[in-house]
């Protein structure tokens, strides 16, 4: 094991995907950490619990800004290196009926894809053979199962002696200290809960479902383009599928509406009618933390470093954000996503 850089541990608050990735990154560089959360296990209280787990930087590039694509490129390798099972089967993008022109637009605005004709679609996803004439295949993209990935990080941290502590640290000196000082640093990775400190952080509600449908086999995430609500279906194995996700400007974390559920299910049914027979295992709701440009931020205020705003890209961006945060804390390298604290 590497010699710790500082004898004092760095305190991380929040054990969602951002906090766990950062803890894991710091530990692997020899920096001890303390991890605090109100819950001692990853669970439904964190929005990463409800994530799709797609490591699809190029598809996200359709609407997300350039850094998301670039940072997202680090994700699959990072997760794999941490021992998380990463499935590298690509992403298949499809449209329904008259929306096929949406595919051309999607193709124009994204990179590293190839047009898939009916034969190719049948080869990639035999279940969907003869149902779609055209699609876009993003061969290099990957996906993982978020809850397994969170559990894996938690377990490996526990093995290194870092357990999630349910008591919150008492901040003795919130405004003291200077940049570059590791001692007594607190990293706030609380996601939307940090809106109590960050007044430019907002919630973007997402609703998702988990279905069991043994009649359907998919090898990779399918994205359905539709002019009003793009959706995706991610295979979780054993006939289980994650169906997501709505994107609504609201910080509500509790109520899935009938309309959203109808929209999600209709899209799945349109992809393949066998989804009509699916068993509904879960309906999930949470709100993603986002800043106005939907890009992540690292922000310093006294001895607190806020790491937040991963929006709908938690699993995609957390590795790069963790790397940049660690570079900042340990090597005093100013991260690209550092911003000024205007409070």
């Amino acid at each position: 094991m590497t010699e710790p850089l500082s004898t004092k541990p760095v305190r991380i608050i929040g054990a969602g995907v951002a906090g766990l990735c950062l803890a894991s990154e710091l530990m692997s560089r020899g920096q001890r950490v303390e991890l605090h959360d109100r819950h001692d296990e990853p669970g439904p209280h964190a929005c990463s619990w409800w994530a799709g787990g797609m490591l699809a930087p190029f598809c996200e590039g359709e609407t997300a800004e350039e850094p998301v694509v670039r940072f997202g490129g680090e994700a699959a390798g990072w997760w794999h290196q941490k021992g998380v099972e990463v499935t590298q089967q690509g992403t298949l993008v499809l449209t329904l009926g008259r929306d096929t022109r949406e595919l051309d637009r999607f193709a124009r605005r994204t990179l590293h894809h190839q047009m898939a004709d009916a034969d190719m679609i049948a080869r990639l996803e035999p279940t969907l053979a003869n149902r779609h004439r055209r699609g876009l295949f993003f061969e290099t993209e990957a996906h993982l199962t978020p809850r397994d990935a969170l559990a894996m990080l938690r377990d490996s941290l526990a093995q290194q002696g870092v357990a999630i502590t349910r008591t919150m640290p008492v901040d003795q000196n919130p405004n003291g200290g200077t940049d570059g000082e590791v001692d007594n640093l607190t990293i706030d990775c609380r996601g939307l809960a940090a809106a109590d400190q960050l007044d430019d952080l907002r919630g973007v509600k997402g609703e998702m479902m988990v279905l069991r449908c043994p009649d359907i086999t998919l090898n990779r995430p399918i994205r359905l383009l539709h002019p009003r609500f793009p959706i995706y279906i991610v295979p979780r194995g054993d006939g289980v599928f994650m169906l997501g996700a709505t994107q609504i400007e609201s910080s509500d974390r509790n109520r899935a509406t009938a309309r959203s559920v109808l929209e999600l299910l209709s899209a799945a049914y349109a992809l393949h009618p066998a989804f009509g027979e699916a068993e509904i295992l879960e309906i999930g709701v949470d709100a993603r933390p986002a800043f106005a440009d939907n890009l992540p931020r690292i922000r310093r205020r006294g001895q607190t470093v806020f790491v937040n705003g991963l929006f709908r890209h938690g699993f995609l961006l957390a590795p790069a954000v963790a790397r940049m945060t660690a570079d900042y804390i340990l090597n005093n390298q100013r991260p690209e996503i550092m911003d000024e604290d205007n409070r």
């Binding site: 907002r202 400007e249 609201s250």
Partner: peptide
């Protein structure tokens, strides 16, 4: 106006923008 966002602070972030 989505009714789910109305009547409480849930949509406040976007409304402020």
């Amino acid at each position: 106006v989505r009714r789910e966002a109305a009547g409480e602070a849930a949509g406040e972030g976007f409304w402020r923008l």
